[in-house]
Design a protein around this nucleic acid. Structure first.
Ligand code: MN
Ligand code: MN
Ligand code: MN
Ligand code: MN
Lengths: 224, 224
DNA sequence: AATATATATACGATGAATCGTACTTTTATT
DNA sequence: AATAAAAGTACGATTCATCGTATATATATT
């Protein structure tokens, strides 16, 4: 029986953060983790040392840490619980998608039990993604990532469907929602200002100028 | 603004356990708490000393602890979250009532935020009780306790409606459910054996012999 | 190549929560 | 009232997660 190892909520948070950073930048640097987890640098050094001893991660000083197979397995389970929690919050409790991330980040540790997570997944209708479009790992840790590209990289005149949003700060999500920039929405590039200037996009008939920072958290699937 | 004080999950658990024991026995003894919380006696002594310093409880050695006003306020909020969690588990996730208590005891700490608990309460339809019939404290800490008496104390031939069940051990709840002894069910006393012997009750047409231990966790509202 | 800047580590210290054993006090029994 | 049993407390120790300051190393800039 290869059931998933039980670790403290703290270690789960570390694994979750490492997973995200690894996905985004290839590895998780001490400093990034300190910011992400809101703790002092020395704390990170301590904890990753202990996590390395437990074979959850490998660490190359000044290069960052990476998940081992063992660590990734747990991380994926945390991410799974996180994203199912988000779905519960939006789909069942009707909470705004801008508020779900922080709440889910606590909830995820309280629903580790299979007797809870399985019924939850079922009631939600086995959703494939979180409300922000990120894939929900399967029970066995499989992640089906829909192919997509950054809105910021889409060519002039091209259009596509928003697949996911990879910045879950409440203010960012609120802003995106007011423009209708949510997963499933159709967007077209109308203009791209030079020198990394704004991008004008058309959504639901309306046009908006987006900064590159914003256009770089939105992933779309190009229409053929 | 008298918003509720934030304490650690551990202290919340202590307050919750003290609330229950106080309700059941008038006060919470060190030993009872050790059993309830599954920690060593010395740990209880330590923690209640610290809790007394923070004015959450008063403590008379060998007599037990009691909640202060301040402590009770927090305890009621924890109990509120616990019972709303149980409702979520049974009503939304369709989890059996015998499994909800333990799961809720973790969940309750992850849904302290007003932005979560209010929508949850609303979605559940502002339930008055947990699945076991115990009242859900209001946001302001009001508890509306329906008048009821122990099934074990009901006279021969009398009948009533089950109001609540005050033992939430999984095996007890499973047993009660198989007999149909759940809140709302009508029961009648058919026989009471002497010397604290079994009680024969009629439920839904069937008759069952219940030990006094069982009849002493079931509370009923006598018909007329 | 030398220096400056960013990044990471070492180290000593703290607080919360826990344990187990030894000791003390209260309550029950004779 | 003396003694036994039960209940509670004291105390020293451990582990986890954290902090902040001082020090070290690597990378970027000149
Ligand atoms: Mn989290
Ligand atoms: Mn999400
Ligand atoms: Mn609890
Ligand atoms: Mn209950």
């Amino acid at each position: 029986m290869s059931s998933i190892e039980v670790v403290s909520p703290t270690i789960e948070e570390y694994l979750e953060a490492i997973y995200r950073l690894e996905k985004k930048k290839g590895s998780a640097k001490t400093g990034d983790l300190a910011k992400e987890l809101n703790v002092a640098l020395g704390t990170i050094t301590n904890t990753i040392e202990s996590m390395e001893k437990q074979n959850f991660i490998t660490h190359k000083p000044y290069k960052g840490v990476n998940l081992t197979k063992k660590g990734r397995k747990i991380a994926l389970d945390v991410v799974r619980r996180h994203r199912l929690s988000e779905r519960l919050l939006t789909d069942v409790l009707h909470i705004d998608w801008s508020k779900t991330h922080d709440a889910a980040c606590k909830l995820e540790h309280a629903i580790a039990d299979k007797d809870i997570i399985k019924p939850l997944e079922k009631v939600l209708g086995k959703p494939k993604t979180c409300p922000h479009g990120n894939p929900i790992p399967s029970e066995s840790g499989k992640v089906i990532e829909e192919k997509s590209e950054l809105l910021a990289n889409l060519g002039l005149g091209k259009e596509g469907i928003i697949v996911k949003v990879t910045d879950e700060r409440p203010d960012m999500l609120q802003y995106l929602a007011t423009l209708g920039l949510v997963p499933g929405a159709n967007v077209q590039i109308e203009e791209k200002a030079p020198f990394n200037g704004p991008i004008i996009v058309k959504v639901m008939g309306a046009s908006y100028a987006l900064g590159r920072n914003v256009a770089s958290v939105i992933w779309v699937k190009k229409n053929e």
